[in-house]
Nucleic acid binder design. Structure first.
Lengths: 201, 201
DNA sequence: CAAAGTATAGAACAATGTTCTATACTTTGT
DNA sequence: ACAAAGTATAGAACATTGTTCTATACTTTG
């Protein structure tokens, strides 16, 4: 019955704790996310989380950083048509959120009272945000979105997407076809900010 | 030095606890929101929060309900031009959020692990949401937003506004003129969903 | 194979939400 | 005015939380 007769090798502790934490998060949400529960699930002593992650907030910081690293990779432009790629980045953002709900919860849902990301973690987040700015600047180079600062617009588009997706994560979305509705949302918002080009008044 | 030599009269307990809770929330956020701290600030025994509010979650439920009651009143259409009023309802929504940050935090920021609104509280929230649906249906009656379900669009517009404002509440908004930028945001989003009417393709 | 390193169990601490008790005060009905 | 009912209070108490500390036993390293 004893799950691990010997103690966990050092190298396994970090990945096993990360796995356990993410799994626990997706099973029971922030409520179940306790140091003792994570340690139990990882077959590890609670102390391990302090020795390897600097406590609960350190573990959250690690999840945050991992999440933004993945997100940045998913968002990076690949050199095609700017307008298409901007739309695809929106779809990729939502895909990331739904496929990495645990990460997204730590990164964007603000459910962990007492947690604020470290300077290093905030930097990684900024780099991910810059990918979105790049998309917009590529669009502007072909005439879209005139007369608006790219970082300003990036913030607006991100805010809109985040608002939509956070409700989806919380299960407060009652659309029939969620994928379709999100596409409609995305192109609606995008069209709104580009309308100035089509018919300036 | 004794702040209240006698015990608090029954009728004062509910309002004083509510005041203390909201004040504490705006001073120290969800971290400082503890039963003992609220009771201390209200000059009241901790037990009062259980006798009058059914505990911490009951108190949150009361704040939620009060917030949505106010919000509904602020959002209700008053019978003018539908398009103008829709825009004004967006401005009113943001005004409510910024002027009632404590309420908004409880209602929309999901910062309280272990709190889910009661059935009654959820009902009050639904009624507030319906005001937005009304706005959209008024717009549709004059030709705006064709071919889209009003509740669906209401959800999208609300999601977008909430996304924007939640970032503002968390102080992750770096626009120069915040009021102006929000207006730009609002009209951009609105224009996007109405574009079908102007030039269908 | 000895020395350094480290994972572990377990106790311990303060703070939290919550419940319970007895006491002292208010309100209410007559 | 006064007795009876109601209730606000202080304080102890409990389980759970994040966190720290200790001694022990195991691994890794030179």
């Amino acid at each position: 019955m004893s799950p691990r007769p010997q103690r966990t090798p050092s190298q396994l502790i970090v990945p096993e704790v990360m796995n356990a934490a993410l799994q626990l998060l997706s099973e029971s949400g922030p409520e179940g996310f306790t140091v003792r529960a994570i340690a139990r699930k990882a077959n590890v002593a609670p102390m391990a989380i302090y020795n390897h992650f600097d406590g609960k907030n350190g573990l959250l910081d690690a999840i945050w950083t991992e999440g933004f690293t993945i997100l940045q990779r998913e968002l990076a432009p690949i050199g095609g048509d700017p307008e298409d790629e901007l739309l695809r980045s929106g779809i990729a953002y939502r895909k990331f959120a739904l496929e990495h709900k645990s990460h997204y919860t730590v990164m964007f849902m603000n459910r962990f009272v007492g947690f604020t990301p470290s300077i290093a973690a905030a930097y990684v987040a900024t780099r991910a945000f810059q990918e979105l700015v790049k998309h917009i600047e590529r669009c502007q180079s072909v005439g879209m979105f005139p007369d608006i600062a790219s970082d300003n617009l990036a913030q607006m588009l991100w805010a809109a997407c985040h608002g939509y997706i956070s409700l989806e994560i919380l299960d407060i979305n009652f659309a029939r076809d969620r994928d379709e509705t999100f596409l409609q949302f995305l192109s609606g918002v995008q069209r709104g900010f580009d309308a100035l080009r089509v018919e300036p008044r």
